[in-house]
Amino acid sequence: MIRRLLTAILMLGACSMAAAQKGTPTDMVQVKGGTFVPLYGSDGAAVTVQSFRMDKYPVTNAEFEAFVAKNPKWKKTAVKKLFADANYLRHWTSESGIGANTDKLKNSPVTNVSWFAAKAYCECEGKRLPTVSEWEFAALASETKADASSDPKFYQRSLDWYSQPNPKYLPPVQQSFRNYYGLHGMIGLVWEWTSDFNSALIIGESRANASLDRQLFCGAGSNGASDVKNYVAFMRYAFRSSLKANYTVANLGFRCVQDQKVQTIAKK
């Protein structure tokens, strides 16, 4: 029994520190559950999202650097191509760290990370990647409203950001737009990985998505978008569906979430 515990501790090893911080997640905020209608996948029906905790900021280069230091298999040179493609951490100039541009990049969101790398990071923190539904639900918020989906100003701002090419250096996470929940940069900073990014049954030939081929997808039924005027959601779903799990992209980062339940247990 003791030996088992010991192995467990050893196995956790590098990640244990983060797990210890679980009780007081000052770097997280609560997102109160509710319902919303996603663009795809529910045939226009509302989907319920349970309350959850979400990182205030996307994970930064400095945070990811610390993770890599503790978990050398996620080093640029060590990572298996199955888990991250050739552009993995391309913007880092040194083998195991940010390198030359540390000052400019340390507080900016980490990008060029694969789904596997993002997932490993969150697991290490005792957290997980958000689901598409959780992420979309939290992203509905403007500065003042939990659901700003019908606010034309908020909508236009999102659309404007999605239309701009990447800046040379992404700004520090603290400087980005803060929404109703206290989440920074949900819109306007980077795209973000979700755990089930591959759950939207849409294909690259987006004009065929309205009536999907039954040969390609089982059980997809009618798969029309719930709101054909929601261009910002279209762009997010299109982006996700262009990904594979080992892809790394220059404006794709991530943040982690935690179930509310875990929190209450931790508090006790």
Partner: peptide
């Protein structure tokens, strides 16, 4: 051919 090539060329940034 399907989509005039669109079905085969859906390309993420950096790909």
């Amino acid at each position: 051919g399907p989509g005039g090539g669109a079905a085969s060329t859906f390309t993420a940034p950096g790909h």
